[in-house]
């Protein structure tokens, strides 16, 4: 199976502004043509970057999307060959749409009127 699996750290209907302060994530399988084949929301028992990292590694996640990711976790995930698209500010759907089309980049600001 081709394509990739992404985890978007979320808070409410927004990309989580802090990776270490969220207990929710949206996990998506994205086909090579940009189709989102599946999506599921994960609720963790607590806000824990450790739990998120464990989940990412245990479930073969290729890309993590979040707002602020502290360097320790950023380096840890990168070292584990996980792409990290951080400093993303916006609601979930625009972020997912950009991610699926391969256009999401670190630092993207996606709130209405702020899209670059």
């Amino acid at each position: 199976m081709t394509g990739h699996r992404a985890l978007i750290a979320i808070r409410g209907n927004e990309v989580a502004w802090r990776f270490d302060r969220t207990a929710e994530a949206l996990v998506c399988d994205i086909a090579e043509d940009g189709t989102v084949r599946s999506r599921s929301e994960i609720i963790f028992a607590r806000q824990s970057p450790e739990d998120l990292c464990d989940y990412v590694l245990a479930h073969g996640v290729d890309t993590v999307v979040a707002g602020a990711v502290e360097e320790e976790y950023y380096h840890y995930l990168r070292y584990k060959r996980v792409d990290v698209i951080d400093n993303v500010a916006g609601e979930i759907e625009p972020a997912l749409a950009r991610l699926a089309s391969g256009r999401l980049a670190s630092g993207d600001i996606l709130f209405p009127g702020k899209e670059g």
Binding site: R18, R21, K114
Partner: peptide
């Protein structure tokens, strides 16, 4: 310019935001 108009939680990103 980047920050203006954004919800403060996405700019300051403190541990207490939310």
């Amino acid at each position: 310019d980047e920050a203006r108009g954004l919800p403060c939680r996405h700019v300051l990103r403190t541990a207490t935001c939310g």
